[in-house]
């Protein structure tokens, strides 16, 4: 089965967009982690920091899954196989 070039180009553009988004979000979350160290202390701060880590991990995992979907769309027609219930996979 031949994949039309137009679709490939769209997928490549989406992949680039998502990759850029991932970089921006990761950088923003890194800045939060850096600014959080020493700004406040105590149990509430610890709990909050833990929650931030979870939040960052979830956002990154989500974007990773988006990247995977885009990559698969670019490389082949098996994009539909990554259904929403698929386990997250870290890449890159």
């Amino acid at each position: 089965m031949t994949i039309p070039d137009e679709t490939r180009a769209t997928a490549a553009g989406a992949l680039a967009t998502v990759a850029r988004t991932r970089r921006e979000v990761t950088a923003a979350l890194d800045r939060v982690a850096a600014a959080g160290a020493g700004a406040w202390d105590g149990r509430a701060a610890q709990l909050w920091a833990g929650r931030m880590r979870h939040l960052a991990a979830e956002a990154t995992a989500l974007l990773d899954r988006c990247l995977l979907v885009c990559e698969q769309a670019r490389s082949g027609p098996s994009a539909a196989s990554t259904a929403p219930g698929a386990p997250p996979r870290a890449i890159g």
């Binding site: 769209t10 967009t17 921006e24 923003a28 600014a35 700004a39 988006c66 979907v69 885009c70």
Partner: peptide
């Protein structure tokens, strides 16, 4: 600066969500 960073991260996630929604729609993602 922490509060500013958190707000910036929130904004990055919001704009990222819009971008990702558009990109996933193009490739047929969820």
């Amino acid at each position: 600066p922490l509060a500013a960073a958190v707000r910036a991260a929130g904004e990055a996630l919001h704009s990222g969500a819009r971008t990702v929604a558009h990109a996933l729609a193009q490739v047929g993602g969820p």
